[in-house]
Amino acid sequence: MKGIVFLVSSVFLMSSVSAGMTALTHTSRANCINNESVSWQYNVPKTMFVSSKHKFNINGSLHTISSGGYVTNWRVAGIHWSEGGPVAPIPPVWTVYGTHLIKVGTRITQISSYATNCSVFDGWW
Protein backbone atom coordinates (compact mmCIF):
# COMPACT_ATOMS: atom_id res chain seq x y z
CA MET A 1 0.00 0.00 0.00
CA LYS A 2 2.83 2.42 0.85
CA GLY A 3 4.38 1.67 -2.54
CA ILE A 4 1.15 2.57 -4.36
CA VAL A 5 0.79 5.83 -2.42
CA PHE A 6 4.43 6.69 -3.21
CA LEU A 7 3.95 5.89 -6.91
CA VAL A 8 0.76 7.96 -7.21
CA SER A 9 2.39 10.84 -5.31
CA SER A 10 5.47 10.68 -7.54
CA VAL A 11 3.44 10.72 -10.76
CA PHE A 12 1.38 13.68 -9.52
CA LEU A 13 4.51 15.59 -8.48
CA MET A 14 6.31 14.87 -11.77
CA SER A 15 3.34 16.05 -13.81
CA SER A 16 2.93 19.26 -11.81
CA VAL A 17 6.65 19.92 -11.60
CA SER A 18 7.09 20.10 -15.37
CA ALA A 19 4.53 22.69 -16.52
CA GLY A 20 6.92 25.22 -18.06
CA MET A 21 9.48 22.58 -18.94
CA THR A 22 7.22 20.99 -21.56
CA ALA A 23 4.86 23.73 -22.74
CA LEU A 24 4.28 27.46 -22.61
CA THR A 25 2.62 28.35 -19.31
CA HIS A 26 1.14 31.56 -17.89
CA THR A 27 0.59 32.19 -14.21
CA SER A 28 0.23 34.79 -11.48
CA ARG A 29 1.08 34.62 -7.80
CA ALA A 30 -0.02 36.90 -4.97
CA ASN A 31 0.95 37.29 -1.31
CA CYS A 32 4.15 35.37 -1.95
CA ILE A 33 6.95 37.81 -1.07
CA ASN A 34 6.72 39.03 -4.70
CA ASN A 35 3.48 39.72 -6.55
CA GLU A 36 3.96 38.61 -10.15
CA SER A 37 2.66 37.36 -13.47
CA VAL A 38 4.95 35.25 -15.66
CA SER A 39 4.86 33.53 -19.06
CA TRP A 40 7.51 30.91 -19.71
CA GLN A 41 8.62 27.78 -21.47
CA TYR A 42 12.11 26.67 -20.53
CA ASN A 43 14.70 27.29 -23.23
CA VAL A 44 12.09 28.09 -25.94
CA PRO A 45 12.25 31.82 -26.71
CA LYS A 46 8.99 33.49 -27.69
CA THR A 47 7.99 37.12 -28.24
CA MET A 48 5.78 38.01 -25.28
CA PHE A 49 4.47 40.90 -23.20
CA VAL A 50 3.26 40.49 -19.61
CA SER A 51 1.26 43.00 -17.58
CA SER A 52 0.54 42.34 -13.91
CA LYS A 53 -2.13 44.40 -12.13
CA HIS A 54 -1.92 44.33 -8.32
CA LYS A 55 -4.89 45.21 -6.13
CA PHE A 56 -4.30 46.01 -2.47
CA ASN A 57 -7.44 44.49 -0.93
CA ILE A 58 -7.36 46.61 2.23
CA ASN A 59 -8.09 49.93 0.45
CA GLY A 60 -8.75 48.84 -3.17
CA SER A 61 -5.76 50.69 -4.66
CA LEU A 62 -4.36 49.32 -7.95
CA HIS A 63 -1.09 49.57 -9.81
CA THR A 64 0.42 47.79 -12.81
CA ILE A 65 3.88 46.34 -13.42
CA SER A 66 4.83 45.06 -16.87
CA SER A 67 7.67 43.56 -18.87
CA GLY A 68 8.10 47.00 -20.44
CA GLY A 69 7.12 45.94 -23.95
CA TYR A 70 7.42 42.84 -26.10
CA VAL A 71 10.46 40.78 -25.14
CA THR A 72 11.83 37.73 -26.94
CA ASN A 73 13.02 35.31 -24.28
CA TRP A 74 12.00 31.99 -22.72
CA ARG A 75 10.69 33.78 -19.60
CA VAL A 76 8.91 37.16 -19.52
CA ALA A 77 7.43 38.66 -16.36
CA GLY A 78 5.85 41.60 -14.59
CA ILE A 79 7.18 41.37 -11.02
CA HIS A 80 6.90 43.72 -8.06
CA TRP A 81 9.80 42.52 -5.90
CA SER A 82 9.09 42.24 -2.15
CA GLU A 83 5.55 43.62 -2.47
CA GLY A 84 3.73 40.44 -1.44
CA GLY A 85 4.68 40.64 2.20
CA PRO A 86 4.13 37.65 4.45
CA VAL A 87 3.40 34.41 2.65
CA ALA A 88 -0.31 33.50 2.45
CA PRO A 89 -1.91 35.97 4.87
CA ILE A 90 -5.53 35.30 5.77
CA PRO A 91 -7.50 36.99 4.32
CA PRO A 92 -5.34 37.65 1.23
CA VAL A 93 -3.89 41.16 1.24
CA TRP A 94 -3.21 41.26 -2.52
CA THR A 95 -5.00 40.08 -5.65
CA VAL A 96 -2.99 39.79 -8.90
CA TYR A 97 -4.49 39.90 -12.41
CA GLY A 98 -2.12 38.93 -15.23
CA THR A 99 -2.40 39.68 -18.94
CA HIS A 100 -0.07 37.62 -21.14
CA LEU A 101 0.35 38.46 -24.85
CA ILE A 102 2.17 36.06 -27.18
CA LYS A 103 3.14 37.38 -30.61
CA VAL A 104 3.79 35.05 -33.56
CA GLY A 105 4.25 37.02 -36.77
CA THR A 106 1.28 39.40 -36.90
CA ARG A 107 -0.93 37.19 -34.70
CA ILE A 108 -1.28 38.08 -30.99
CA THR A 109 -2.83 35.67 -28.48
CA GLN A 110 -4.01 36.93 -25.10
CA ILE A 111 -4.18 34.79 -21.95
CA SER A 112 -5.39 35.95 -18.53
CA SER A 113 -4.32 34.72 -15.10
CA TYR A 114 -5.52 35.50 -11.59
CA ALA A 115 -4.21 34.81 -8.10
CA THR A 116 -4.93 35.47 -4.46
CA ASN A 117 -2.45 32.91 -3.17
CA CYS A 118 1.15 31.80 -3.34
CA SER A 119 0.72 28.56 -5.24
CA VAL A 120 4.23 27.43 -6.14
CA PHE A 121 2.95 24.55 -8.27
CA ASP A 122 0.36 26.46 -10.29
CA GLY A 123 2.21 26.86 -13.59
CA TRP A 124 5.65 27.22 -12.06
CA TRP A 125 7.06 23.74 -11.95
Rank of each mutant, 00 (worst) to 15 (best):
28 S>V: 01
33 I>Q: 13
2 K>C: 10
117 N>G: 15
58 I>L: 14
35 N>Y: 09
47 T>Q: 04
42 Y>S: 11
53 K>H: 08
61 S>N: 13
50 V>G: 03
89 P>T: 04
2 K>T: 12
81 W>N: 13
50 V>T: 07
70 Y>N: 00
7 L>P: 07
93 V>D: 09
50 V>D: 05
120 V>R: 07
84 G>Y: 09
115 A>I: 07
114 Y>F: 15
30 A>F: 01
6 F>S: 10
5 V>Q: 10
84 G>N: 05
59 N>G: 08
10 S>A: 15
54 H>Y: 13
21 M>S: 10
89 P>C: 03
81 W>M: 11
40 W>A: 03
117 N>K: 10
78 G>S: 03
75 R>Y: 14
106 T>D: 13
15 S>N: 14
58 I>Q: 14
67 S>G: 04
36 E>W: 13
86 P>R: 14
31 N>L: 01
92 P>Q: 01
78 G>A: 05
31 N>W: 06
25 T>C: 06
96 V>L: 05
61 S>K: 10
1 M>Y: 13
6 F>G: 02
96 V>N: 01
87 V>K: 08
77 A>R: 08
58 I>R: 14
30 A>T: 00
30 A>Q: 02
107 R>W: 11
117 N>W: 11
21 M>K: 02
36 E>M: 14
11 V>G: 00
99 T>D: 07
23 A>N: 11
95 T>E: 01
106 T>I: 11
67 S>Q: 01
17 V>R: 07
108 I>V: 15
119 S>Y: 08
52 S>V: 03
94 W>N: 08
118 C>I: 00
47 T>D: 04
10 S>Y: 11
34 N>Y: 09
60 G>D: 07
75 R>A: 13
106 T>Y: 10
63 H>N: 11
22 T>N: 01
57 N>Q: 09
103 K>L: 04
117 N>D: 15
91 P>Q: 02
20 G>I: 00
10 S>M: 14
73 N>F: 12
40 W>I: 02
50 V>A: 07
119 S>L: 08
113 S>A: 02
86 P>S: 13
82 S>Q: 13
17 V>F: 14
92 P>L: 02
111 I>D: 05
57 N>H: 07
104 V>F: 09
68 G>F: 08
2 K>I: 12
76 V>Q: 04
18 S>F: 08
113 S>F: 09
63 H>V: 08
101 L>K: 11
86 P>Q: 15
117 N>V: 11
83 E>G: 06
9 S>C: 12
10 S>C: 12
115 A>D: 02
89 P>Y: 06
40 W>C: 02
2 K>R: 12
122 D>L: 11
116 T>A: 04
105 G>I: 05
33 I>S: 12
88 A>P: 08
77 A>P: 09
39 S>C: 06
36 E>Q: 14
69 G>F: 04
112 S>M: 12
21 M>T: 06
25 T>Y: 01
53 K>C: 05
11 V>P: 05
5 V>P: 05
87 V>Q: 09
51 S>A: 15
